[in-house]
Amino acid sequence: MPIKIPADLPAYDVLTNEGVMVMSEDQAARQDIRPLRIGLLNLMPKKIQTENQFARLIGAGPLQIELSLIRMSEHQTRNTAAEHMAEFYRPFQEVKDQKFDGLIITGAPIEHLAFEDVTYWDELCEVMDWTQTNVHSTFGVCWGGMAMLHHFHRVPKHILSDKLFGCYRHANLSPASPYLRGFSDDCVVPVSRWTEVRAPEVEAAGLPILLGSDVAGPCLIEDPAHRAIYILNHFEYDSGTLREEYERDLSQNQIEGAEIQLPLNYFPDDNPNATPQNRWRSHAHLLYGNWINEIYQTTNFDLSKIGH
């Protein structure tokens, strides 16, 4: 079964051309089933790119998914057309009376700020508390996952001296986890961040680490008490996303004078002119497919009973 998104959302044509099954509102209405309602709270500056990345992963399975795009109510993006935001996104305050089977909270390029200094932090805290009554399962990604760890467990984030940037191999620390069905003993995950959470502090909070690296630290963390999982890295990235970030950093370097490092284990032979190979796509689909399957197996058919 396909993912249900508006026919004029840019992701519709992108995913159709890739062979991902998509359907319009009219097509979905003719099917006598309840689709899973998944919300995407998109905090990334490149909204359309992020929509495509997550829709691709959650729309690849056999279940019908209804994707709802959500934004912070007062925060105005400067990188996506206002017309796109007005047509496809709804502010959180307009959807907080609704129920969702799943919610993805994306990362945000604001790692250098203390959580409480983020302009929309108060509303994000409201969102995170709201997930406990209105969302069956929440997936926090990168900064979004760190924010949830901080909010629910006071696990701190630590500033790194150098950017953790590249493709890092991670060990499968919990092969029996339903979220890691089909995973190899280790896998490659794209990483791009200036902050980290530390394994001893995560474990002290009583949270199991499912994927981890001796170099990059915890990657995938489960939070059963809050019906959530947190991934601190970027399985959703396209093949060229790290290259785009590298070129962006090089461009900024001409202005700021900072030393820019090549993403580790990304370009063949560390040649930035070579085409990067995607070595994480299959595990990305496994993880998000397993998350959707867990939601399907455990959510209530009656949406009104989610959170009770």
Rank of each mutant, 00 (worst) to 15 (best):
P6E: 11
D8R: 12
D8T: 12
D13V: 13
V14M: 13
L15C: 04
Q27F: 06
A29D: 13
P35C: 09
P35F: 03
L36M: 12
G39A: 10
I48N: 08
E51F: 10
R56S: 05
R56V: 07
S68F: 13
R71T: 00
T80H: 08
H84N: 11
F88H: 06
E94M: 11
P109N: 04
H112T: 15
L113V: 07
A114W: 13
D117H: 13
L124R: 04
E126Y: 11
T133Y: 12
V141I: 06
C142K: 00
G144R: 06
G145Y: 06
H150D: 08
H150C: 05
K157Y: 07
D162E: 14
K163R: 10
C167P: 03
A176K: 15
G182Q: 06
S184W: 09
V188Q: 09
R193Q: 05
W194G: 05
D214I: 08
I221N: 05
Y237P: 02
D238M: 12
N253K: 14
Q261W: 14
Q261A: 15
L262V: 02
F267L: 04
D269H: 12
N271E: 06
N271V: 10
P276A: 08
S282F: 15
G289P: 01
I292E: 03
I295L: 10
D302W: 12
D302I: 13
D302E: 12
D302P: 09
I306R: 10
H308N: 14
